[in-house]
């Protein structure tokens, strides 16, 4: 703000200047309201704020409001029913089951993805030969490119592709397993058994995301000065020790961000489960909150109740983010005031 009045004074403030900024003469006291300033505010503050309010905040407010109604979704009429939708929600075994499944996905998908991505990232950047310059394993550039391939494929294509690969009769997986002489995998339904459906779904999601998060961690590790690694190596630290005591603490903020992003993805997961097991999996073992929400809204025509599910989903996601922050803080991570 303070720099702008100065800039304004440079402009000729002549009375009635045809193309002059603002309307009329400029007075020195406040003097900051040039066309520049106003347009700057409109473009850089007003517009984004308006877009944010219209497309982010307002739908939230709407959803929260509809959560208190019995709106069917296809009429203009509805009654306000207060918190009835939420009390029903807590007793709805289908939704409780969906929350349980989502929480399982939310726990395991980020964990597995990050462990694998981090391992690969360390191998590619600093896991190479124990002598000489700090570098990754041989051929790391190739691995880096290849591992990003799955992330380039759209989620729905990943889902459909894996569904074909996992097809019991004609799929690649069972083809290889029976080819190896494991006859019990003849027509084995990976996505149709309670014991395997959820792990296989997790595997597909992890497969899709590992490459991207690996790249994220590679960028973070590249930011760590190599002198630190050299010093550690001179002190006799091995690969495990450097990874655990140097790499991980120095990129923990990236890990935390990745954890939250992946958690939000895993708590939604609509596209993947809808492609792999559209009907909710064996005994509804892969049915997630977003799927149940969609079904309630569009098949059962209960938009009010579905909005309540949406609000519940938002709460679960926020609780998840808060948990990740707390755990990171308790484990000695960065505090608000700076590095601790």
């Amino acid at each position: 703000m303070t720099a702008i009045p100065g800039a304004g004074q440079v402009l000729p403030a002549g009375e009635g200047a045809p193309a002059g900024p603002g309307r009329g003469p400029r007075r020195g006291r406040l003097g900051g309201w040039s066309f520049d300033t106003v347009s700057f505010f409109v473009v850089f503050l007003g517009l984004p704020l308006a877009l944010f309010l219209v497309f982010v905040i307002w739908p939230f407010v709407q959803a929260a409001f509809y959560a208190l109604t019995n709106w069917s979704g296809f009429t203009t009429e509805f009654d306000i029913v207060g918190l009835a939708n939420f009390t029903t929600l807590l007793q709805d075994p289908r939704f409780v089951n969906a929350v349980g499944n989502s929480v399982m996905f939310g726990l395991f998908i980020p964990l597995i993805t990050i462990v694998i991505a981090l391992t690969f990232a360390i191998l590619i950047t600093v896991g190479g030969a124990g002598r000489g310059q700090i570098r990754g394993v041989r051929g790391s550039g190739f691995y880096r490119v290849v591992s990003l391939f799955p992330y380039v494929i759209p989620a729905i294509a990943v889902g459909i592709m894996w569904r074909l690969i996992l097809d019991p009769s004609n799929g690649l997986v069972n083809g290889i397993l029976t080819g190896l002489g494991l006859d019990r995998f003849q027509s084995f339904a990976w996505l149709g058994n309670v014991g395997t459906a959820m792990p296989v779904t997790m595997f597909v999601v992890v497969w899709g995301f590992v490459g991207f998060y690996m790249l994220l961690f590679i960028a973070a590790i590249k930011g760590v000065p190599s002198e630190i690694y050299e010093a550690a190596r001179i002190d006799g630290a091995g690969r495990w020790r450097t990874s655990w005591s140097i790499t991980l603490p120095l990129i923990r903020d990236n890990v935390q961000t990745a954890y939250i992003y992946l958690g939000i993805i895993a708590l939604d997961l609509f596209v993947y489960v809808q492609a792999l097991n559209p009907q909710g999996g064996p005994d509804n073992s892969t049915l997630v909150m977003s799927q149940q929400l969609f079904r309630t809204a569009f098949t059962e025509g209960k938009f009010g109740y579905a909005s309540a599910m949406g609000v519940a989903m938002a709460i679960v996601t926020l609780v998840f983010a808060a948990l990740v922050f707390t755990v990171n803080r308790l484990a000695g991570g960065r505090s608000e005031r700076g590095r601790g």
């Binding site: 569904r163 996992l166 097809d167 019991p168 009769s169 004609n170 003849q186 027509s187 084995f188 339904a189 990976w190 996505l191 149709g192 058994n193 064996p282």
Partner: peptide, 12 residues
């Protein structure tokens, strides 16, 4: 019944 139906896309 042919096994594996619970993991097979229906038109397949």
């Amino acid at each position: 019944f042919k096994p594996g139906g619970s993991g097979t896309q229906f038109t397949a």
